[in-house]
Amino acid sequence: MSDNAFIRFLKEAGELSAFTGRFFKELFKPRQEWRELLRQCFYVGNHSLALVGTTAFIMGLVLTIQSRPTLVEFGAEAWLPKMVSISLIREIAPVITALICAGKVGSGIGAELGSMKVTEQIDAMDVSGTNPFKYLVVTRVLATTLMLPVLAVIADAVALYGAYLGANIKGVVSWQLYWSQVFEALSYSDALPAFVKTYFFGFAIGIVGCYKGFNSNKGTEGVGRSANSAVVVSSLLVFVLDLIAVQIADILGFT
């Protein structure tokens, strides 16, 4: 990394931190934009559900199909539901859901706010007696933070169903046996850290998308760049947060 790129990175990180600080400052200020928050929650949930569901189903199915030969080799085929369910719940479903949302929702927020910025709609909101940060940023960040865990839980369920079908392609596992093995394998310490980290993933996706869009410039070219970098930065942040979450869970004994 050249000196210039490093300075740019530090500058960007500083600005993003200041933007996050402003989010918390504005969060508790009146007036609360409940209507817009609900609209954004619906948008985030509704627009990502089909994609998240499809991806989770495929991940569950593929993971089961690909894990079977190795387990068969060690004579541990019966462990398939247990192993797959732990992988899905602890890691794959939350991360895949976050990545899908970073691509779908993060880019959408970056492009929408970027376009509003360059067409002066944000200034128009300001002169209309509306705090644009509160109306546009706070509602969107809250929506992604609140909806990502919901989507991740749905993704967990769909992925486990996909895994059930995968387990039955080359073997026979009854519905009851499959689910009893899944719930036997899973414990509170598997589900809780995975669930909690999705709140942070959602927050990261929302704040990065809003930051990129809100600071967009250079016309339509800038809008495209905002959408693109919203996806890249938030996807990267998802992995970084995942790494941190795993370490913290480990330290707290959630293993």
Binding site: E112, M116, T119, E120, Q121, A124, V127, S128, G129, T130
Partner: peptide
């Protein structure tokens, strides 16, 4: 600002709202 109107060069109409909603927005806000 409620006593000062501002016409933006790019019009700055809210893309996601109808004409009616665009007009109601400053009234509500």
């Amino acid at each position: 600002r409620s006593k000062v109107g501002f016409l933006f060069q790019s019009n700055a109409l809210y893309d996601s709202m109808t004409v009616r909603e665009n007009l109601e927005f400053p009234l509500r806000r």
